[in-house]
Design a protein around this nucleic acid. Structure first.
Lengths: 128, 128
DNA sequence: TTCAATGCAAAAGGTTTGCATTAGC
DNA sequence: GCTAATGCAAACCTTTTGCATTGAA
């Protein structure tokens, strides 16, 4: 039997992920969690992020060559990266119609897809 | 003055990039180039990829948290990452209709987009 | 001949792992 | 009390850098 224990470290890291306003880098998670747990080690953060990922509670996103983690279970979504302010937004509308199992030209069987849009966010679009 | 020299290493690496069927990881480039230049070192590959990038002949793409390089100037295209063999292919068919200037729900002005499909490549789809 | 480019090895980041200790259950 | 989880440090991997040597012009 697998016995996953509930620990203070895991609770804090899970809370940090839940409270995040966007995808967080490992360093961000460590810093935020250390507010409550000064002695927290990096290894625990990595192990916990891996665990949460396996549990499907969070998932990794690579943006600008950097691996970040964001809360999962918010349904299918994509990202919009603003070319002016560099902020990343979550989009809940999907511009692609590719159900799992679709056979793409060339014989590629599609299981999933990822879309990142680049442009100007509503705020920057208004600014001069 | 800057004096960039033409060397056998650079020629070989540039050829490898030109012949690539999709974005290559540094290790791929090294392996392929070593067919012609057994003594080639990793450092030279990194330095040359950086040089080619600065010259605008190739550009980096981050897929699955791994940095790869592909030839530039090949027009609009996307990528397919095989979940079984981990190879990345270039797709010439675009699954989204988002011309530059499109206003996306929420007020996001789209200038460009990036799509990555995940699944099984033609070869892996045939294997048991 | 000159000095940019290479190869090697050491260094520098970021991530993972081994192990003794701590702490959930 | 048993053993999963932690913290620390060492190990790993990928990328960069220092330096003596090589080789393009």
């Amino acid at each position: 039997m697998t016995a996953t224990r509930s620990t203070r470290q895991r609770d804090v890291i899970a809370r940090v992920m839940d409270d995040a306003e966007g995808p967080l880098a490992v360093g961000d998670v460590l810093t935020r969690a250390q507010t409550d747990l000064p002695g927290l080690g990096v290894a625990t953060v990595y192990r916990t992020l891996k665990l949460l990922t396996e549990q499907g509670r969070i998932h990794p996103v690579t943006l600008d060559g950097e691996t970040r983690y964001e809360r999962a279970g918010r349904g299918h979504h994509h990202h919009f990266s603003c070319t002016r302010c560099s902020r990343v937004f979550t989009l809940h509308t999907c511009p692609v119609a590719l159900p799992s199992g679709t056979v793409y030209p060339g014989g590629f069987i599609v299981e999933a897809h990822e879309v990142t849009l680049y442009g100007q966010c509503p705020e920057c679009a208004q600014a001069p």
